[in-house]
Amino acid sequence: MFDLSGRKALVTGATGGIGGAIARALHAQGATVAISGTRRAALDELAASLGERVHVVEANLADKDSVEALVPAAETAMDGLDILVNNAGITRDNLFMRMKDEEWDQVIAVNLTAAFRLSRAAVKNMMRRRYGRIVNIGSVVGSTGNPGQGNYAAAKAGLIGMTKALAAEVASRNITVNCVAPGFIESPMTDVLNDKQKEAILGTIPMSRLGKGDEIASAVVYLASNEAGYVTGHTLHANGGMAMF
């Protein structure tokens, strides 16, 4: 089950806590992976730890030209692309009334617009090959909202809508498009929370713990597999029960 041998996957934001776990998990299932991020040294380190079947493709997802170049670079490096994981994400938290246009724009650009452009580029050849898996990494706050994260919640909710629209368009070509929506996961993004904040968050999670990157990665592996071929347009929530839909 969930064998990805021969499959070629691109993971954005692969230097992050969740992205790194996703790249490792896809690779462990046999996929060839192209890992993308902004920090070259961290990408090289991840590539070295994975060994074979790994390609490093640098990209700055805030930059349009860099985004446009990413899918072609991955396709060239791996001779194809079967699985796209739009994982990269940034936060620029602020109270809504204080939120700067730049904070809004940056988060929408990286978390939503880049996923749109990468999916648009990838789906073309997936249609030719009559096979594809796109997995967008959303967030529980895309469904629940979160104070201080108007931009982030909007981008993540946008991903869910985009996922459903694209899923409907390309379903007949054997391409599935889904979301994984993590709750609070141990990662650099949650490391910045102080103990009081963490305690408050844990109080809202029935499992009383943060999730692990591996627990998100395994959801991605499932949606990227042949076995998930009849699941499309779905948002798979992995959040320890903090929000149930």
Binding site: M127, V170, S172
Partner: peptide, 9 residues
Amino acid sequence: SLDTVELVM
């Protein structure tokens, strides 16, 4: 409409 895109490709 998707067929027309594929034909162009």
